[in-house]
Design a protein around this nucleic acid. Sequence first.
DNA 1: TAGATTGTTAATCGATTAACAATC
DNA 2: TAGATTGTTAATCGATTAACAATC
Lengths: 216, 216
Amino acid sequence: MVEKEISQAVIGRLPRYFRYLGELKDDGVERISSQELSELMHVTASQIRQDFNNFGGFGQQGYGYNVEYLYREIGKILGLDTQHSFVIIGAGNLGRALGNYLNFERRGFIFKGIFDRDPSLIGREVRGVPVQGMEALPAFLRENAIEIAVLTIPKNSAVGVVDTLVENGVKGIWNFAHVDLNVPEGVQVENVHLSDSLMKLSYNISSAQPVKSGND
Amino acid sequence: MVEKEISQAVIGRLPRYFRYLGELKDDGVERISSQELSELMHVTASQIRQDFNNFGGFGQQGYGYNVEYLYREIGKILGLDTQHSFVIIGAGNLGRALGNYLNFERRGFIFKGIFDRDPSLIGREVRGVPVQGMEALPAFLRENAIEIAVLTIPKNSAVGVVDTLVENGVKGIWNFAHVDLNVPEGVQVENVHLSDSLMKLSYNISSAQPVKSGND
DNA sequence: TAGATTGTTAATCGATTAACAATC
DNA sequence: TAGATTGTTAATCGATTAACAATC
Protein backbone atom coordinates (compact mmCIF):
# COMPACT_ATOMS: atom_id res chain seq x y z
CA MET A 1 0.00 0.00 0.00
CA VAL A 2 1.47 3.29 -1.11
CA GLU A 3 0.66 6.05 1.35
CA LYS A 4 1.16 9.62 0.35
CA GLU A 5 3.89 11.32 2.26
CA ILE A 6 2.57 13.67 4.94
CA SER A 7 4.36 16.99 5.03
CA GLN A 8 6.45 17.86 8.07
CA ALA A 9 4.37 21.03 8.42
CA VAL A 10 1.37 18.85 9.22
CA ILE A 11 3.31 16.49 11.49
CA GLY A 12 4.65 19.47 13.39
CA ARG A 13 1.11 20.53 14.24
CA LEU A 14 -0.10 17.17 15.47
CA PRO A 15 1.42 17.35 18.97
CA ARG A 16 -0.34 20.66 19.54
CA TYR A 17 -3.68 19.23 18.48
CA PHE A 18 -2.97 16.30 20.77
CA ARG A 19 -2.31 18.62 23.68
CA TYR A 20 -5.48 20.65 23.19
CA LEU A 21 -7.62 17.57 22.72
CA GLY A 22 -6.15 16.02 25.85
CA GLU A 23 -7.12 19.10 27.82
CA LEU A 24 -10.63 19.15 26.34
CA LYS A 25 -10.99 15.48 27.21
CA ASP A 26 -9.86 16.12 30.77
CA ASP A 27 -12.37 18.95 30.97
CA GLY A 28 -15.10 16.49 30.03
CA VAL A 29 -15.78 17.97 26.58
CA GLU A 30 -17.31 15.28 24.39
CA ARG A 31 -17.47 16.80 20.94
CA ILE A 32 -15.95 19.77 19.16
CA SER A 33 -16.30 21.31 15.71
CA SER A 34 -13.37 22.47 13.63
CA GLN A 35 -14.78 25.97 14.08
CA GLU A 36 -14.67 25.80 17.89
CA LEU A 37 -11.24 24.22 17.91
CA SER A 38 -9.98 26.86 15.52
CA GLU A 39 -11.03 29.65 17.89
CA LEU A 40 -9.40 27.89 20.81
CA MET A 41 -6.12 27.27 19.02
CA HIS A 42 -5.99 30.38 16.86
CA VAL A 43 -5.65 28.54 13.58
CA THR A 44 -8.14 28.31 10.70
CA ALA A 45 -10.88 25.70 10.75
CA SER A 46 -9.89 24.91 7.20
CA GLN A 47 -6.40 23.97 8.23
CA ILE A 48 -7.69 21.75 11.01
CA ARG A 49 -9.95 19.82 8.64
CA GLN A 50 -7.23 19.55 6.02
CA ASP A 51 -4.73 18.32 8.58
CA PHE A 52 -7.02 15.64 9.98
CA ASN A 53 -8.06 14.49 6.53
CA ASN A 54 -4.50 13.60 5.70
CA PHE A 55 -5.11 10.57 7.88
CA GLY A 56 -8.69 9.80 6.92
CA GLY A 57 -11.97 11.15 8.19
CA PHE A 58 -12.19 11.41 11.95
CA GLY A 59 -15.32 13.56 12.03
CA GLN A 60 -18.95 13.37 11.17
CA GLN A 61 -20.91 15.90 9.15
CA GLY A 62 -23.30 17.94 11.22
CA TYR A 63 -21.70 16.76 14.46
CA GLY A 64 -18.02 17.60 14.44
CA TYR A 65 -15.34 15.49 16.07
CA ASN A 66 -15.57 13.23 19.07
CA VAL A 67 -12.85 14.53 21.38
CA GLU A 68 -11.93 11.26 23.03
CA TYR A 69 -11.77 9.39 19.72
CA LEU A 70 -9.82 12.08 17.92
CA TYR A 71 -7.37 12.35 20.80
CA ARG A 72 -6.74 8.62 20.72
CA GLU A 73 -6.37 8.54 16.93
CA ILE A 74 -3.83 11.35 16.88
CA GLY A 75 -1.98 9.59 19.66
CA LYS A 76 -1.82 6.48 17.48
CA ILE A 77 -0.58 8.47 14.49
CA LEU A 78 2.19 9.89 16.67
CA GLY A 79 3.11 6.39 17.78
CA LEU A 80 2.10 7.02 21.37
CA ASP A 81 0.15 3.78 21.58
CA THR A 82 3.36 1.78 21.72
CA GLN A 83 6.38 2.01 23.98
CA HIS A 84 9.67 3.46 22.86
CA SER A 85 12.76 2.70 24.85
CA PHE A 86 15.52 5.27 24.90
CA VAL A 87 18.99 5.87 26.24
CA ILE A 88 20.69 9.15 26.97
CA ILE A 89 24.23 9.66 25.73
CA GLY A 90 25.84 12.29 27.91
CA ALA A 91 25.20 12.50 31.66
CA GLY A 92 25.88 16.21 32.02
CA ASN A 93 23.37 18.71 33.31
CA LEU A 94 21.04 18.47 30.35
CA GLY A 95 21.23 14.70 30.02
CA ARG A 96 20.43 14.21 33.69
CA ALA A 97 17.60 16.74 33.50
CA LEU A 98 16.02 14.83 30.62
CA GLY A 99 16.48 11.53 32.43
CA ASN A 100 14.61 12.95 35.40
CA TYR A 101 11.75 14.28 33.34
CA LEU A 102 8.81 12.05 34.18
CA ASN A 103 6.33 13.17 31.55
CA PHE A 104 8.06 11.27 28.76
CA GLU A 105 7.30 8.01 30.55
CA ARG A 106 3.61 8.91 30.56
CA ARG A 107 3.69 9.05 26.75
CA GLY A 108 5.37 5.70 26.39
CA PHE A 109 8.99 6.79 26.21
CA ILE A 110 10.89 4.51 28.59
CA PHE A 111 14.22 5.65 30.03
CA LYS A 112 16.47 2.59 29.92
CA GLY A 113 20.06 3.73 30.22
CA ILE A 114 22.45 6.65 30.43
CA PHE A 115 26.04 6.76 29.27
CA ASP A 116 29.03 9.04 29.59
CA ARG A 117 32.71 8.82 28.87
CA ASP A 118 33.62 10.77 31.99
CA PRO A 119 34.71 8.16 34.59
CA SER A 120 33.78 10.47 37.45
CA LEU A 121 30.12 10.27 36.45
CA ILE A 122 30.00 6.52 36.05
CA GLY A 123 27.98 4.75 38.71
CA ARG A 124 26.06 7.86 39.63
CA GLU A 125 22.33 7.28 39.39
CA VAL A 126 19.74 9.24 37.42
CA ARG A 127 16.23 8.27 38.46
CA GLY A 128 17.49 4.90 39.59
CA VAL A 129 19.44 4.27 36.38
CA PRO A 130 23.23 4.05 36.79
CA VAL A 131 25.50 5.97 34.44
CA GLN A 132 27.59 3.54 32.37
CA GLY A 133 30.77 4.00 30.39
CA MET A 134 30.66 4.31 26.63
CA GLU A 135 32.23 0.86 26.15
CA ALA A 136 29.05 -0.70 27.49
CA LEU A 137 26.89 1.07 24.93
CA PRO A 138 26.86 -1.26 21.87
CA ALA A 139 25.86 -4.39 23.78
CA PHE A 140 23.30 -2.48 25.82
CA LEU A 141 21.62 -1.09 22.71
CA ARG A 142 21.24 -4.54 21.18
CA GLU A 143 20.24 -6.40 24.32
CA ASN A 144 17.57 -3.86 25.21
CA ALA A 145 16.40 -3.21 21.65
CA ILE A 146 16.80 0.51 22.16
CA GLU A 147 14.86 2.53 19.62
CA ILE A 148 15.83 6.11 20.48
CA ALA A 149 19.09 7.72 21.55
CA VAL A 150 19.12 11.16 23.11
CA LEU A 151 22.36 12.98 22.37
CA THR A 152 23.37 15.45 25.07
CA ILE A 153 27.11 15.48 24.44
CA PRO A 154 29.36 18.04 22.76
CA LYS A 155 29.19 18.15 18.99
CA ASN A 156 32.47 16.42 18.31
CA SER A 157 31.57 13.42 20.42
CA ALA A 158 28.09 13.39 18.91
CA VAL A 159 29.36 12.91 15.37
CA GLY A 160 31.55 10.05 16.54
CA VAL A 161 28.86 8.10 18.34
CA VAL A 162 26.28 8.10 15.54
CA ASP A 163 27.72 5.06 13.75
CA THR A 164 27.64 3.00 16.93
CA LEU A 165 24.02 3.93 17.46
CA VAL A 166 22.95 3.10 13.93
CA GLU A 167 24.89 -0.15 13.78
CA ASN A 168 23.19 -1.34 16.92
CA GLY A 169 19.64 -0.76 15.81
CA VAL A 170 18.78 2.75 16.96
CA LYS A 171 16.02 4.12 14.73
CA GLY A 172 15.78 7.69 15.96
CA ILE A 173 18.19 10.25 17.35
CA TRP A 174 16.97 13.14 19.46
CA ASN A 175 19.88 15.45 18.93
CA PHE A 176 20.70 18.23 21.39
CA ALA A 177 24.27 18.55 20.11
CA HIS A 178 24.88 21.69 18.09
CA VAL A 179 25.79 19.92 14.89
CA ASP A 180 24.05 18.40 11.87
CA LEU A 181 24.26 14.63 11.99
CA ASN A 182 24.68 12.36 9.00
CA VAL A 183 22.67 9.20 9.24
CA PRO A 184 21.71 6.52 6.73
CA GLU A 185 18.26 6.50 5.22
CA GLY A 186 15.66 5.02 7.52
CA VAL A 187 17.17 6.55 10.64
CA GLN A 188 15.42 9.68 11.86
CA VAL A 189 17.02 12.72 13.45
CA GLU A 190 15.08 15.32 15.38
CA ASN A 191 17.20 18.31 16.30
CA VAL A 192 16.74 20.48 19.37
CA HIS A 193 19.23 23.24 18.84
CA LEU A 194 18.71 25.33 21.96
CA SER A 195 21.08 28.10 21.00
CA ASP A 196 19.41 28.43 17.59
CA SER A 197 16.11 28.86 19.34
CA LEU A 198 17.56 31.48 21.66
CA MET A 199 19.02 33.36 18.69
CA LYS A 200 15.64 33.41 17.01
CA LEU A 201 14.18 34.92 20.16
CA SER A 202 16.99 37.44 20.19
CA TYR A 203 16.25 38.44 16.59
CA ASN A 204 12.56 38.82 17.25
CA ILE A 205 13.17 40.95 20.32
CA SER A 206 15.53 43.23 18.41
CA SER A 207 13.30 43.58 15.37
CA ALA A 208 10.25 44.29 17.54
CA GLN A 209 12.04 47.21 19.22
CA PRO A 210 13.12 49.46 16.34
CA VAL A 211 16.07 51.63 17.21
CA LYS A 212 14.12 54.85 17.51
CA SER A 213 10.35 54.96 16.97
CA GLY A 214 7.77 53.56 19.38
CA ASN A 215 6.37 50.60 17.56
CA ASP A 216 5.45 49.67 14.01
CA MET B 1 11.86 53.84 7.73
CA VAL B 2 9.49 51.03 6.85
CA GLU B 3 11.32 47.72 6.68
CA LYS B 4 9.66 44.77 5.04
CA GLU B 5 8.84 42.01 7.48
CA ILE B 6 11.23 39.09 7.20
CA SER B 7 9.50 35.73 7.24
CA GLN B 8 10.10 33.42 10.19
CA ALA B 9 11.22 30.76 7.70
CA VAL B 10 14.20 32.94 6.86
CA ILE B 11 14.90 33.87 10.49
CA GLY B 12 14.82 30.21 11.41
CA ARG B 13 17.66 29.52 8.97
CA LEU B 14 19.95 32.33 10.13
CA PRO B 15 21.37 30.54 13.18
CA ARG B 16 22.38 27.62 11.00
CA TYR B 17 24.16 29.92 8.54
CA PHE B 18 25.80 31.56 11.51
CA ARG B 19 27.04 28.22 12.80
CA TYR B 20 28.49 27.11 9.46
CA LEU B 21 30.14 30.46 8.85
CA GLY B 22 31.64 30.40 12.32
CA GLU B 23 33.16 27.02 11.60
CA LEU B 24 34.49 28.16 8.23
CA LYS B 25 35.98 31.20 9.88
CA ASP B 26 37.64 29.07 12.54
CA ASP B 27 39.00 26.86 9.77
CA GLY B 28 40.60 29.92 8.22
CA VAL B 29 38.37 30.03 5.14
CA GLU B 30 38.30 33.58 3.79
CA ARG B 31 35.69 33.54 1.07
CA ILE B 32 32.88 31.27 -0.03
CA SER B 33 30.40 31.27 -2.89
CA SER B 34 26.71 30.50 -2.46
CA GLN B 35 27.40 27.39 -4.55
CA GLU B 36 30.08 26.07 -2.18
CA LEU B 37 28.03 26.90 0.89
CA SER B 38 25.00 25.20 -0.63
CA GLU B 39 26.93 21.95 -1.07
CA LEU B 40 28.20 22.15 2.49
CA MET B 41 24.82 22.82 4.03
CA HIS B 42 22.65 20.81 1.66
CA VAL B 43 20.42 23.67 0.67
CA THR B 44 20.08 25.43 -2.70
CA ALA B 45 22.42 28.25 -3.62
CA SER B 46 19.36 30.16 -4.70
CA GLN B 47 17.88 30.01 -1.23
CA ILE B 48 21.12 31.18 0.32
CA ARG B 49 21.29 34.23 -1.93
CA GLN B 50 17.62 35.00 -1.43
CA ASP B 51 17.97 34.71 2.34
CA PHE B 52 20.98 37.00 2.54
CA ASN B 53 19.44 39.54 0.23
CA ASN B 54 16.58 40.06 2.64
CA PHE B 55 19.08 42.08 4.62
CA GLY B 56 20.97 43.76 1.81
CA GLY B 57 23.86 42.60 -0.32
CA PHE B 58 26.64 40.97 1.62
CA GLY B 59 28.44 39.54 -1.37
CA GLN B 60 30.33 40.67 -4.42
CA GLN B 61 29.77 39.49 -7.97
CA GLY B 62 32.52 37.27 -9.25
CA TYR B 63 33.94 36.82 -5.75
CA GLY B 64 31.30 35.42 -3.44
CA TYR B 65 31.01 36.23 0.22
CA ASN B 66 33.68 37.17 2.70
CA VAL B 67 33.27 34.63 5.49
CA GLU B 68 34.39 36.81 8.37
CA TYR B 69 32.24 39.74 7.27
CA LEU B 70 29.16 37.65 6.56
CA TYR B 71 29.52 35.89 9.90
CA ARG B 72 29.66 39.20 11.73
CA GLU B 73 26.73 40.66 9.81
CA ILE B 74 24.49 37.68 10.51
CA GLY B 75 25.52 37.90 14.15
CA LYS B 76 24.40 41.52 14.18
CA ILE B 77 21.09 40.67 12.55
CA LEU B 78 20.51 38.07 15.25
CA GLY B 79 21.28 40.65 17.91
CA LEU B 80 24.42 38.88 19.05
CA ASP B 81 26.46 42.06 19.03
CA THR B 82 24.73 43.26 22.18
CA GLN B 83 24.26 41.66 25.56
CA HIS B 84 20.96 40.20 26.70
CA SER B 85 20.43 39.59 30.38
CA PHE B 86 18.13 36.77 31.37
CA VAL B 87 16.64 35.11 34.42
CA ILE B 88 15.42 31.57 34.79
CA ILE B 89 12.05 30.96 36.40
CA GLY B 90 12.06 27.45 37.81
CA ALA B 91 15.12 25.94 39.46
CA GLY B 92 14.27 22.31 38.72
CA ASN B 93 16.50 19.99 36.71
CA LEU B 94 15.99 21.75 33.41
CA GLY B 95 16.28 25.27 34.83
CA ARG B 96 19.51 24.43 36.59
CA ALA B 97 20.87 22.71 33.48
CA LEU B 98 20.22 25.82 31.40
CA GLY B 99 21.78 28.03 34.07
CA ASN B 100 24.90 25.93 33.91
CA TYR B 101 25.13 26.02 30.16
CA LEU B 102 28.11 28.22 29.41
CA ASN B 103 27.73 28.63 25.67
CA PHE B 104 24.90 31.13 25.99
CA GLU B 105 27.26 33.51 27.75
CA ARG B 106 29.61 33.33 24.79
CA ARG B 107 26.83 34.67 22.56
CA GLY B 108 26.01 37.56 24.83
CA PHE B 109 23.24 36.01 26.90
CA ILE B 110 24.03 36.82 30.52
CA PHE B 111 22.62 34.68 33.32
CA LYS B 112 21.54 37.10 36.02
CA GLY B 113 19.11 35.34 38.33
CA ILE B 114 17.13 32.20 39.03
CA PHE B 115 13.85 31.93 40.88
CA ASP B 116 11.66 29.21 42.33
CA ARG B 117 8.68 29.06 44.63
CA ASP B 118 9.95 25.91 46.34
CA PRO B 119 11.52 27.08 49.65
CA SER B 120 13.80 24.04 49.77
CA LEU B 121 15.60 25.25 46.63
CA ILE B 122 16.05 28.84 47.76
CA GLY B 123 19.61 29.76 48.58
CA ARG B 124 21.03 26.92 46.53
CA GLU B 125 23.51 28.17 43.94
CA VAL B 126 23.51 27.62 40.19
CA ARG B 127 26.80 28.68 38.66
CA GLY B 128 27.33 31.10 41.52
CA VAL B 129 23.85 32.58 41.29
CA PRO B 130 21.61 31.95 44.30
CA VAL B 131 18.05 30.73 43.82
CA GLN B 132 15.60 33.37 45.04
CA GLY B 133 11.94 33.16 45.98
CA MET B 134 9.28 34.36 43.58
CA GLU B 135 8.46 37.39 45.75
CA ALA B 136 11.84 38.84 44.85
CA LEU B 137 11.17 38.61 41.12
CA PRO B 138 9.42 41.89 40.22
CA ALA B 139 11.99 44.18 41.83
CA PHE B 140 14.85 42.09 40.45
CA LEU B 141 13.54 42.33 36.90
CA ARG B 142 13.29 46.11 37.08
CA GLU B 143 16.53 46.74 38.90
CA ASN B 144 18.55 44.57 36.53
CA ALA B 145 16.70 45.57 33.36
CA ILE B 146 16.15 41.93 32.52
CA GLU B 147 15.30 41.40 28.87
CA ILE B 148 14.63 37.67 28.69
CA ALA B 149 12.90 35.23 31.02
CA VAL B 150 13.40 31.50 30.63
CA LEU B 151 10.35 29.58 31.82
CA THR B 152 11.15 26.13 33.17
CA ILE B 153 8.18 25.69 35.44
CA PRO B 154 4.99 23.63 35.07
CA LYS B 155 2.40 24.99 32.69
CA ASN B 156 -0.02 26.26 35.31
CA SER B 157 2.62 28.33 37.07
CA ALA B 158 3.90 29.54 33.71
CA VAL B 159 0.63 31.14 32.71
CA GLY B 160 0.46 32.90 36.08
CA VAL B 161 3.92 34.42 35.95
CA VAL B 162 3.67 35.96 32.48
CA ASP B 163 1.94 39.15 33.63
CA THR B 164 4.61 39.81 36.23
CA LEU B 165 7.31 39.39 33.59
CA VAL B 166 5.66 41.68 31.08
CA GLU B 167 4.79 44.34 33.64
CA ASN B 168 8.41 44.51 34.72
CA GLY B 169 9.91 45.02 31.32
CA VAL B 170 10.71 41.55 30.02
CA LYS B 171 10.77 41.63 26.22
CA GLY B 172 11.17 37.97 25.40
CA ILE B 173 10.09 34.70 26.95
CA TRP B 174 11.90 31.47 26.21
CA ASN B 175 9.15 29.08 27.08
CA PHE B 176 9.87 25.47 28.02
CA ALA B 177 6.48 25.06 29.71
CA HIS B 178 4.08 22.91 27.74
CA VAL B 179 1.48 25.56 27.19
CA ASP B 180 0.78 28.40 24.76
CA LEU B 181 1.37 31.74 26.44
CA ASN B 182 -0.66 34.88 25.86
CA VAL B 183 1.44 38.00 25.78
CA PRO B 184 0.77 41.56 24.67
CA GLU B 185 2.05 42.76 21.32
CA GLY B 186 5.71 43.67 21.38
CA VAL B 187 6.64 40.81 23.71
CA GLN B 188 8.17 37.80 21.97
CA VAL B 189 7.68 34.17 22.88
CA GLU B 190 9.91 31.40 21.62
CA ASN B 191 8.60 27.97 22.52
CA VAL B 192 10.73 24.91 23.15
CA HIS B 193 8.18 22.18 23.55
CA LEU B 194 10.39 19.17 24.19
CA SER B 195 7.62 16.62 24.27
CA ASP B 196 6.26 17.92 20.95
CA SER B 197 9.68 17.44 19.47
CA LEU B 198 9.90 13.91 20.85
CA MET B 199 6.46 13.09 19.42
CA LYS B 200 7.56 14.28 16.00
CA LEU B 201 10.53 11.95 16.22
CA SER B 202 8.21 9.15 17.29
CA TYR B 203 5.97 9.78 14.26
CA ASN B 204 8.88 9.82 11.86
CA ILE B 205 10.30 6.59 13.27
CA SER B 206 6.93 4.86 12.95
CA SER B 207 6.24 6.10 9.44
CA ALA B 208 9.73 5.18 8.26
CA GLN B 209 9.25 1.57 9.35
CA PRO B 210 6.12 0.47 7.48
CA VAL B 211 4.40 -2.46 9.12
CA LYS B 212 5.43 -4.94 6.45
CA SER B 213 7.49 -3.94 3.42
CA GLY B 214 11.20 -3.10 3.42
CA ASN B 215 11.41 0.58 2.55
CA ASP B 216 9.69 2.99 0.22
C1' DT C 1 39.25 41.97 -20.20
C1' DA C 2 36.81 37.47 -19.45
C1' DG C 3 35.09 34.48 -16.12
C1' DA C 4 32.72 34.04 -12.06
C1' DT C 5 29.18 34.88 -9.13
C1' DT C 6 26.03 37.90 -7.12
C1' DG C 7 21.45 40.30 -6.84
C1' DT C 8 17.02 40.07 -8.51
C1' DT C 9 13.16 38.95 -11.45
C1' DA C 10 10.31 35.26 -13.15
C1' DA C 11 8.57 30.50 -12.79
C1' DT C 12 7.37 26.77 -10.00
C1' DC C 13 6.01 24.41 -6.22
C1' DG C 14 3.71 23.56 -1.93
C1' DA C 15 0.98 25.02 1.82
C1' DT C 16 -2.89 27.60 3.45
C1' DT C 17 -7.42 29.39 3.00
C1' DA C 18 -11.99 29.68 0.91
C1' DA C 19 -15.96 27.66 -0.88
C1' DC C 20 -19.38 24.36 -1.27
C1' DA C 21 -21.44 19.84 -2.27
C1' DA C 22 -22.03 15.69 0.44
C1' DT C 23 -24.10 13.84 4.35
C1' DC C 24 -25.02 13.08 9.14
C1' DT D 1 -36.60 16.82 7.74
C1' DA D 2 -33.61 21.05 8.19
C1' DG D 3 -29.51 22.71 10.09
C1' DA D 4 -24.92 21.91 10.96
C1' DT D 5 -20.56 20.64 9.82
C1' DT D 6 -17.51 17.67 7.57
C1' DG D 7 -14.60 16.17 3.54
C1' DT D 8 -12.74 17.81 -0.49
C1' DT D 9 -12.04 20.63 -4.54
C1' DA D 10 -10.66 25.13 -6.16
C1' DA D 11 -8.39 29.62 -5.37
C1' DT D 12 -4.94 32.13 -3.17
C1' DC D 13 -0.94 33.04 -1.00
C1' DG D 14 3.83 32.56 0.19
C1' DA D 15 8.11 30.23 -0.12
C1' DT D 16 11.46 27.97 -2.94
C1' DT D 17 13.91 27.31 -7.13
C1' DA D 18 15.47 28.63 -11.72
C1' DA D 19 17.23 31.84 -14.81
C1' DC D 20 19.85 35.56 -16.22
C1' DA D 21 21.28 40.40 -16.54
C1' DA D 22 24.34 43.24 -13.78
C1' DT D 23 28.84 43.78 -12.24
C1' DC D 24 33.02 42.81 -9.81
